[in-house]
Structure formats: structure tokens, C-alpha cells
Nucleic acid binder design. Sequence first.
DNA 1: CCCCTCCTGTACCGCCGGTACAGTTTTCAG
DNA 2: CTGAAAACTGTACCGGCGGTACAGGAGGGG
Lengths: 209, 209
Amino acid sequence: MRKGEETRTRILDVAEAAVLQKGFGGTSIEELIAETGITKSGFFYHFRDKNELAKALLNRYIENDERIYDEIFSRARDLTDDPLQSFLLGLKLLSELLSDLPNGHPGCLVAGICYYERLFDREIQETNRNAVLAWRRRFGRMLRDIVAVYPLREPVDVDQLADMVSSVLEGGIVLSKTLKEPNTLAEQVLMLRTFVKMLFLPVAAMPRG
Amino acid sequence: MRKGEETRTRILDVAEAAVLQKGFGGTSIEELIAETGITKSGFFYHFRDKNELAKALLNRYIENDERIYDEIFSRARDLTDDPLQSFLLGLKLLSELLSDLPNGHPGCLVAGICYYERLFDREIQETNRNAVLAWRRRFGRMLRDIVAVYPLREPVDVDQLADMVSSVLEGGIVLSKTLKEPNTLAEQVLMLRTFVKMLFLPVAAMPRG
DNA sequence: CCCCTCCTGTACCGCCGGTACAGTTTTCAG
DNA sequence: CTGAAAACTGTACCGGCGGTACAGGAGGGG
């Protein structure tokens, strides 16, 4: 019972790394069992088929993702009561966390799966959709707290702004991976931070050019 | 000679649609030849292997992509001499083009390939990298034209800002695809437009909240 | 008429996802 | 300590797929 969970976790660990490097279609079950040191029968004892592996992988990834955001933004809230400052601080902490990743961000499973949509069943696509909607709610909540205190200097939709956080993260990951420049992702997050700052704070006085 | 090119193009058309829906690993050569109405031998006459298909597909995609940006932003430049206004107009035109896509954006091959990196050889990864660098140069050039005329209201790196265009596009595609909300991508482009506008234009006077 | 391009047909290989199922070891609750 | 359930292993097999090899044919241009 306990051992089963451990093996399952090991399979998921190996699979996650492989999938983020090669995609689902490029990851064979045979290589997973070779690296895990398990037999094929053992694999199919834990997962009925590849689709169920994907399901488990995605759910675990999303949970972990949510946990990380919870930690970062709750740390930020601990450090200041102001909703804008804590959001900006959260983005700063996030960018630091991202730039500390030794080999750059390994890739986002949600994005990976959306580029394979037809390979998976509706349940997985629905899970994926809900993950993105959860991001929208999360950042939307924080932004609404800000809007309640600070005036918006341009008329923007709060949900769309919340989506922009996800956009920049997902897009930054793509750029970082493609360019093989780990820093790009962190820089993009800071750029987004500048946008949020400008949207809510008066601009520093500047000489007219 | 002529006929060969036509068949090749037909294969690439079918392949592109399939790859954007299912990813490379999820697209079989057999299904491509079935839909193209060609035999396996015929396929391998045109492409030595799947990797070469990917190469041709990516090159064609990038060329087309460049052409579209050329058209949009040259149209924008035709309509106004001001570099900022023409950039903002270009983003507007881009968002309109994106929201006019009947089934939403089909997906970006560059992003698709970056999520499969290990499956392809270095040449493809280099091509992909160069495509992203070309985006950086393209948008960077336009932004530098703006900076030459308008003061930047926040200290941001121009190349990082140029990358933000790519980030928001790539991220917006991921969100749009995952959420199955075609509009999200266009909205994200407009949100980016707002950011650029704020960076260069004085904010409209607002009552202090 | 002949050659070259552009294919078709056939046969084959090895890998992979998946199935089936019988048998064995490990674990833990009672 | 024991027995049943959990957690596997081993073996054999299937069909699809990527890829190879190679022979041959249609059709157009010089």
C-alpha cells in the first residue's frame, strides 16, 4: 500500500521530466519503465494507459503549481498589508524564484498538453481549462483587492489583466526555452510588474522630451 | 518538377494542420499520406524522414509568419508617420486579425517545437531560436524608433519590451487554446497595446481616488 | 526516343502502446 | 505468525507506426 504510492511517485517523477523534454508523444512507456527500474506489467498496474498517466501527471503538476503560488503570494502578504505592494512584491519574488532555476524553467505541462489537445480525452482538457481559470481567479482576486484601493489609470478589464499574468508566464517560458536564455522568463515577469505598477501608481515626474 | 512542388505543398498543408492539433509525436506519417492521398513511398520521396518534414514545416511557417507581420506593420506605417501611433495601430490590426480567425489561433509551431526539443536535431532548434530572435529584432526596431521621439515613462529595456510582444502572443495562444476562448488572444494583444501606450504617452488626467 | 522527375507496390524490420493472464513476492492488519 | 490483499514479474502476443529497400511505372520535355 505504502510502497505502491512510492513507486507511483517515482514513475510520475521520471515521466514528468521526460514529458517536459520530449512531449507526450515523444515519451515512450518503455523508456519510463527502463529508467524507473520497473517492468511493463508493473507500469500498467499503476496506470491503465498513457492517458491515465497524463491525467495523474497533470493533476500533480497543477497541485504543485498552486502550492507554489500560494506560498509566494502569502509570503508577500505577510510583508505588507497594502494589496498593490504585496502583489508587486509577489511578482518580484516569483521572478527571483524563476531566475534561480538552475537550468531554466523546465516547461509548463498545461501548455504542453494544450499543444497536444487531440491526444487526450475531454477530462484532461477540462482539467487543463480549469487550471487556467484558477489562475484567472487567483490573480483576479488580488487585482480586485487593489482596484478597491487604487484608481486604475487606464480602463482595463480586471480578468483580462489577470490573464496577462498567465500569458506572460506561459509566453516567457516558451521564449526562455526556445532562446535557451533562462533569464528571459524572469525579465518578462518584471516587465509585467512594471505594467501593473504603472496601471495603479502615478508616474514619476519626468521632463517633457 | 511543377507537380512535385504541388504535392509537397499539399503534404505540408495536411501536416501543419495535424501537427498543430496533435503535436509532432502525435502525428503519424500514415495518417498524413492517407489524407493527402499519396503512398508511403511517395512521402519518403519528398522527405527523407520525419525530421526533415519538421524542418520544411517550420521554415514555411516562419516565412509565412514574417510575411504577415510585414504586411500588418507596413499597412500601419502607411496610415501614419508617427512611430508610436503606427506601432499601436499595428497591434490593433494584429488583434483584429487574430479575433477574425474562425476557430481561434491554430497554435504556433515555434512553441510546439520548443515543447518537443529533444525530438529534433540542432538545426531545427537553431531555426526556432532564430525565429524568436527575429521577432525581438523586428519589434525592437520599431520600439527604438519610438524611443527616439517619445520619452520612456519607466526605465525598461527595449529588447525586453520587444520580447514582451512575443511573450504575450505565445502566452495568449496557450490561454486561448486551453480555455477554448478564441477572443482571449486578441484581448491580450490589446492589453499589451495599453501597456505600450502608457509607457510612452502621458496618462489622461484622473480624479484622485 | 529516352531520360528524368514523380511517383506506386510490395515486402520487410524493429519499436511501441496495449492486452491478457498466470505466477510470485512483499506488506501489513488481525 | 498468518493469511489475504497489494504490488508487482514474466511471457506471449497484437496491430500500428517510422523507416528501409528496391523494383517498376507513368508522363512530360529535350
